[in-house]
Write a protein that binds this DNA or RNA. Structure first.
Length: 480
RNA sequence: GUCCCCGUCGUCUAGCCGGCCUAGGACAUCGCCCUUUCACGGCGGUAACACGGGUUCAAAUCCCGUCGGGGACGCCA
């Protein structure tokens, strides 16, 4: 068990395309990516599609889309296990010849019956090694005669297998707990344990970073490495992500597919930052204040397996929303624009995009108040299109008074006569009008805000007016 | 059931080779200030070492047990 060559770091993300990229998988991918980028290693993407019946091309596409959305790129692959079956067969042959594996003729039904029996007695079932004693020649003869059989690994019956995990430390398993697991199904397809180990060896993976749900499988895989006399990778199991009730994250806790978060108006960088901090806390340099907002380079520079937590983490939507707010506020308008354009498309609004600079100025004005990308297509719609709805509650509160409406129309007329339309001039004209009619300026300000934006909440009113421009401001005031 | 892992504010966590912890930060929450709305911002508050035994002058920190949660026990991955 020699240490991997530090100059040849290679990790992999190996999802199974039986579902979309979910948040747990995304975080595993992220940690692998962060680790590879930190150490200058390579990230391999490998699709584990040996369960043909449950895998689909659509899911593969969904996973790739999810990774790209998160900004996780890979250096090799995607490789598909289904195209590497020869490798698994040759390795299983080798295991068979060296006596580390044997053919098993027990049928699924027999196995199921025995499991059922054990359950009834309250015993744990473990394959009893029924076929282990069949001499190889006899087994081969039966197989050649057409008898259906699987191939099992002949697991050591005594001693212990110790996992040296980069996050969990030393974890020991008694070998007698481990049954002779299946390597090859009776249809010749490899099982997970065989294919991962074959690929991880063949692809020269140095660090296996994966979910903690695989920790108890690790001794089985280590046994295969040992039987093959192959160098052991470093294992690093990362704790799981839980729902708010501390049970495993599932649909009933909300979205589990990462693409759902794009659809919910989350900025990918924000999602990635949030995910990274779920189970990982970077070491703060002495005296440094703990910071939680990290852009790519900083996150990569700080990443380390040692700082990964051993306890499971609850997915906290409120904190994700906070990250989203922070990112929207901090990002340059030009970077936000493409994301916002997707929101417009989804909301079927078509702003005039010929004036990019003007658009960016408006986005800069609004972004401090946004909490979600949807805001740019919903509550801020009035800034980008004339087809916006007026919030009924806001209208009721600030535009119900006919006197106010009349004054707003008059304000529109005064604005129309202004040569220079800037914040100072717009404000002065409004305050003058209020004074002329002995009404509080606030009443006109609140009313104008609703008339101009359709909302009771918006940026500073006079900045809004300038952003909309004189022509639109006047038109909306006159129409009140 | 068996094996493995985990257990600090509601949440993510710092601390955990014992004293510097009257347990720190962030999110959330509450209050005040700022203010043309809302947000931001500023200031302040509420809030945790699962429980029980040890060891020790001293335990969140070490040991044991209990309880709780999670994972694994498939010809799924």
């Amino acid at each position: 068990m020699s240490a991997p060559d530090p100059n040849n770091i290679k990790v992999r993300f190996a999802p199974s395309p039986t579902g979309y990229l979910h948040v747990g998988g995304a975080r595993t991918a992220l940690f692998n990516w962060l680790f590879a980028r930190r150490l200058g290693g390579a990230l391999v993407l490998r699709i584990e599609d040996t369960d043909v019946a449950r895998s689909s091309d659509e899911m593969v596409e969904g996973i790739l889309t999810g990774l790209r959305w998160l900004g996780i790129d890979w250096d090799e692959g995607p490789f598909f296990q289904n195209q590497r079956l020869d490798l698994y067969r040759s390795v299983s042959d080798k295991l068979l010849r060296s006596g580390h594996a044997y053919y098993c003729f027990c049928t699924k039904d027999e196995l199921e019956a025995r499991r059922e029996l054990a359950r009834g007695d309250g015993r744990q079932y473990k394959y009893e090694g029924t076929c282990r004693g069949i001499v190889p020649g006899e087994a081969l003869r039966r197989k050649d005669a057409g008898e259906s059989c699987a191939m099992r690994f002949a697991a050591p019956q005594d001693g212990t297998t110790r996992v040296e995990d980069a996050v969990f430390g030393q974890v020991e398993f008694a070998n007698m707990e481990i049954e002779d697991f299946v390597l090859l199904r009776s249809d010749g397809q490899p099982t997970y344990h065989l294919s991962v180990v074959c690929d991880d060896i063949d692809m020269a993976i140095t660090h296996v970073i994966r979910g903690a749900d695989h920790l108890s499988n690790t001794p089985k895989q280590m046994m295969i490495y040992q039987a093959l006399a192959a160098p052991m990778p470093v294992f690093a199991h990362v704790p799981l992500i839980l729902g708010t009730d501390k049970s495993r994250l599932s649909k009933r806790h909300g979205a589990t597919s990462v693409m759902a978060y794009r659809d919910e108006g989350i900025v990918p960088q924000a999602f990635r930052n949030f995910l990274a901090l779920l189970g990982w806390t970077p070491k703060a340099s002495p005296g440094e204040k703990a910071v939680e907002i990290f852009r790519d380079q900083e996150m990569i520079a700080k990443f380390s397996l040692e700082d990964i937590s051993r306890s499971n983490a609850v997915f906290d939507r409120a904190k994700l929303d906070w990250f989203n707010t922070e990112y929207i506020r901090a990002m340059p308008a030009a970077e936000l624009l493409p994301l916002i354009e997707q929101e417009w498309a989804a909301a079927r609004i078509q702003p005039d995009t010929s004036d990019r600079n003007g658009l960016c100025t408006t986005i800069d004005l609004l972004k401090a108040r946004a909490r979600n990308l949807h805001d740019f297509a919903v509550s801020f719609a009035a800034f980008f299109t004339d087809e916006f709805a007026i919030d009924p509650a806001a209208r009721e509160k600030f535009l119900a008074d006919e006197k106010v409406r009349g004054l707003l129309r008059e304000l529109g007329q005064r604005y129309a006569g202004l040569r220079e339309f800037d914040e100072g001039g717009a404000e002065a004209a409004l305050r003058q009008l209020a004074a002329d009619h002995d009404i509080k300026a606030g009443a006109l300000i609140n009313g104008a805000r609703v008339a101009l934006t359709g909302q009771a909440v918006a940026p500073s009113l006079f900045a809004v007016m300038v952003s909309l421009g004189k022509e639109r401001t006047v038109r909306r005031l006159l129409a009140v």
